[in-house]
Design a protein around this nucleic acid. Structure first.
Lengths: 87, 87
DNA sequence: TGAAATTTACTGCTCTAACAGTAAAAATAC
DNA sequence: GTATTTTTACTGTTAGAGCAGTAAATTTCA
């Protein structure tokens, strides 16, 4: 699953699946997420140029969690908390 | 970590952290990812309107994995494979 | 089957993301 | 300390995302 396009398409399918199970229409989800109906359609269709705020707004409504993990995630997490306690 | 803005800001910090550890400048990363230098800057700054293809291209270079998980992810996975074996 | 609801696929319009270029600010190296 | 690199923060331009409206295609359901 390296290909970016495939990830986005799969993500769209995941959104649609959750929306259907939730019994929502695209328009209803769009209204809830505060985006246009075309945007929901684009996301489900796997359009790669949607903006992350639109995507994340939709994901939040569907309770779909996003997790990013790099090879240095653990190190970053420690560094991150150290940063916030700096003066 | 519910707030979308916070997630995006944190993501930008994660990218910057990985980039620094990799010893790359923003321009080098931008060239590798095939995006403009401003886009890398925007991502690291936590701009919420970057497009997912730009973001994912950068994440791929940094070997940062993206995982989406909703309450129905397991069900979706089964449904997904069932779909692909349909005629 | 046929009617209603939903999705798909267009439309034009507006707004802005992406971009390279540049310059100032900050960080790093010497 | 100064010079160099890098980052930050602007610019104007261009391409296209977002959007509501609409209509056709599809699905749902009685």
């Amino acid at each position: 699953m390296a290909n970016i396009t495939q990830v986005i398409v799969k993500l769209g399918e995941l959104v649609r699946f959750h929306r259907n199970k939730a019994g929502l229409t695209q328009i209803q989800l769009a209204d809830l997420a505060g985006v246009g109906k075309s945007t929901v359609y684009d996301i489900e269709k796997g359009k790669s140029t949607v903006q992350i705020n639109s995507l994340f707004a939709v994901l939040a409504i569907m309770n779909i969690d996003v997790k990013f993990s790099g090879p240095l995630s653990a190190v970053f997490e420690k560094w991150s908390v150290a940063q916030s306690s700096d003066k």
